[in-house]
């Protein structure tokens, strides 16, 4: 089954602002990263997925349903964590999450049980009975996540879940999201403007820019092996570079690494021979993986 599918999806706001233009993408269940700069159209896409906005043109499907037509059905199966502050300060986390569970259609006692379960899963225990106003940013983010989880959705939409968190808080939140996606069996769409964060946990990456699709693919495909060999030696990097250049290999330096284009199996032998001759301690010799950031870096450079 396709988790999210759009077909030339276009959203033009009343003022003539085009937030999304001709977006066609299909993603499979799992953890999906939605990456783009501020104003790229991430929040608009989320609102379209929730049926809060109707597309100007094109089609959109969530869990095989049309959010514009089957709004209630879609929303019953989707959990949404907004980017901004959205917690009333004078309610306790337990009360708020229970109430929102009931609004999602859970019976009264079930809502109470699942609220404390959801809060436990995000790591809030006894403090859940205190008013939210006294919580730290990290705890508030956890409550926001718990309220999205309380009705056991099939898809979670998380808008910038690491917003405002310190590095340790970010790691904890990302680990939690990863756990939800893998152990809980709930698909997750994580929105972020920080690529490095999302690529650590997601299976699929969708990158948008200015309302247009930049790239959508499995993270594995994006970080696929390339025909470049990376060589690292503990010492004598200069000497090795000179030696390899003398062997007619177009070598480039990148920090402590030497990059050599892989022509055929012979390239390995040439490099190993050179290292052996110079008697250098070889650290690594492997085929280079693309880092996702490079895909964007190239594009950004071309824009400059």
């Amino acid at each position: 089954m396709t988790l999210i599918a759009t077909e030339s999806l276009t959203k033009v706001y009343g003022g003539g602002v085009t937030a999304l233009s001709d977006l066609t993408v299909a993603v499979e269940p799992g953890i999906v990263g939605l990456v783009g700069a501020n104003g790229a159209g991430k929040s608009t896409l989320i609102k379209l997925l929730l049926g809060l906005l109707t597309p100007t043109r094109g089609r959109i499907q969530v869990l095989g349903l049309d959010p514009t037509a089957d709004t209630a059905t879609v929303r019953a199966r989707v959990g949404y964590m907004p980017e901004h502050d959205c917690l009333p300060p004078d309610l306790s986390a337990a009360e708020l999450v229970t109430h929102l569970g009931r609004i999602s259609g859970l019976p009264r006692t079930v809502a109470r049980e699942r609220a404390s379960e959801a809060l436990r899963h995000v790591g809030l225990h006894e403090e859940r009975h205190r008013p939210v106003g006294g919580y730290s940013t990290g705890m508030k983010q956890r409550v926001k996540l718990a309220q999205a989880l309380v009705h056991d959705p099939d898809l979670l939409l998380l808008d910038e879940p690491t917003n405002g968190l310190d590095p340790a808080g970010r790691d904890a939140m990302l680990a939690l999201v990863q756990r939800i996606g893998t152990e809980f069996g709930i698909s997750v769409l994580v929105c972020s403007h920080l690529l490095g964060e999302v690529e650590r946990i997601c299976d699929t990456l969708v990158a948008i820019e200015g309302g247009r699709l930049l790239r959508a693919d499995h993270i594995a495909a994006m970080t696929s092996v390339t025909d470049v060999l990376a060589v690292e030696v503990s010492e004598g990097t200069e000497a090795l570079a000179a030696r390899l250049a003398a062997l007619d290999l177009p070598v480039t330096r990148e920090g402590r690494l030497l990059l050599v284009p892989l022509a055929d199996q012979g390239t390995y032998d040439l490099i190993l021979g050179a290292v052996a001759e110079l008697d250098l301690p070889l650290h690594r010799l492997d085929q280079r993986r693309h880092r996702v950031a490079e895909l964007f870096a190239r594009r950004e450079n071309s824009l400059v």
């Binding site: 209630a72 989707v78 949404y80 959205c86 929102l100």
Partner: peptide, 17 residues
Amino acid sequence: RDMRSGVLPLYFSRPLP
């Protein structure tokens, strides 16, 4: 109060017309 605390998106993203 709901408008001030920004809780409305949590209501309107649920199956509540």
